[in-house]
Design a binder for these strands. Structure first.
Lengths: 214, 214
DNA sequence: CGGGCTATTGAGGATTATCAACTGGTGTGG
DNA sequence: CCACACCAGTTGATAATCCTCAATAGCCCG
């Protein structure tokens, strides 16, 4: 595992640093060391689609398809005392070498990929063809499950997340997201403010995004 | 590569054979040898969500989360002369061993995973928050790009795909999908019938699912 | 021939997007 | 320190999209 650590090239990105210019050959593999990263793509003018949110310990793969343009963006985690996100990365040839040598890493990697794909499939189900309140309820659970949580606020989604971010992840508009979060708040399911959401009634939220009844 | 082939357990599934009973420990890795597979999950009664369609040569990973129930299903490819799909699979410990020994496989595997994840991200963008006609146009291109195509009908989506399947993949209802395909047909973009779609005007279809204008 | 499946079409209604105006918090710079 | 711009969020009216429900037609199969 020491081998694993030392084989990554690591750097503290300055705020707003774009990952694209770093383009490595073939594909990119990485692990997030601290904070949170928004993975997004511009789709029009200032509009963007958020693909995923990576948090501490997340593995990820990223390729560089023919289409140019900014694809990934690092932003400061503003909740955790303004610490800057840190990204460890390596190119895929290096990873390949490591996987061959390190059985532990290899095993962890396979589990991680399996989990990632299952997670994406779940997201397709819940964000695919349900009503807006179902989507948001699922999304809040999803995001909450990603973080380690802060000790004093265990049910606070542990990174900065705006209405616009939530809307983008769920495939809704900012206004709809706002209205639905307001109704969640009236029902006592959550508390929220500028850039943060805290879950108060986990079971109640879960009930809103069940896929099958018993 | 001979090592690679012989290490897979292969079998010709009978029609409608379910994969779940095969449950191996941890995760499942596989490659589709012939035909097409629908990967879906039941969400309610007889309703299902199609997660992906695997075609010949596709790699896939599949895990078995705590929740029980059918998750993957093998069905006969009804276009290609009623041949039955063939699935090669192995459990993750075996895969791990192979990846360590076989550099070619390891490289192919990493590229495949990178491609898969990128593909899923693209799907999130296009199926996330656009209009129904955009979604379907993208989906048709996506499905068409998956298959090798039949020699005499190169622009026919090379496997059985119903309106209900398309609707499920795009997160629409069967009726909406039908109406939009009818409008595509009136515009001369496609031809279609029971269980098949042929693309006539590829550029025209592409124009409907562009994410950014120049 | 009848039953089941795939697909089509229509009418009506519910949900959500769009457009717009407005509030209050945050950071900046004079 | 205050004025200012900007950003995140709220709320309302209206319109468009898509879903739901329903009826029907054609195809495939036993």
């Amino acid at each position: 595992m020491d081998d694993f650590q030392s084989s990554f090239s690591s750097r503290n990105m300055e705020e707003g640093h774009e990952l694209s210019p770093l383009a490595l050959n073939q594909g990119l593999f990485g692990i997030v060391a601290a904070g949170a990263l928004k993975v997004f793509r511009y789709v029009k003018d200032d509009q963007f689609a958020i693909l995923d949110i990576l948090v501490e310990g997340d593995f990820f793969h990223y390729g560089f398809p023919d289409a140019p343009g900014v694809r990934m963006f690092v932003y400061p985690d503003q909740i955790q005392a303004m610490t800057t996100s840190c990204l460890l990365y390596m190119d895929s040839t290096k990873l390949q070498e490591l996987l061959r040598r390190d059985a532990d890493l290899s095993s962890t990697y396979l589990d991680s990929m399996t989990g990632k794909l299952n997670q994406l499939h779940e997201r397709f189900i819940h964000l695919g063809s349900y009503a807006a309140d179902h989507k948001l309820a699922y999304l809040l659970e999803f995001l909450h499950s990603k973080g380690p949580g802060k000790a004093d606020y265990p049910d606070l989604i542990p990174f900065n997340i705006t209405r616009k971010d939530l809307a983008s992840l769920a495939g809704l508009t900012l206004e709809t997201a706002s209205r639905i979060l307001a109704s969640f708040e009236r029902s006592g399911l959550i508390r929220s403010g500028r850039g943060w959401v805290e879950i108060l009634d986990y079971p109640g939220l879960s009930k809103l995004c069940r896929t099958e009844e018993l």
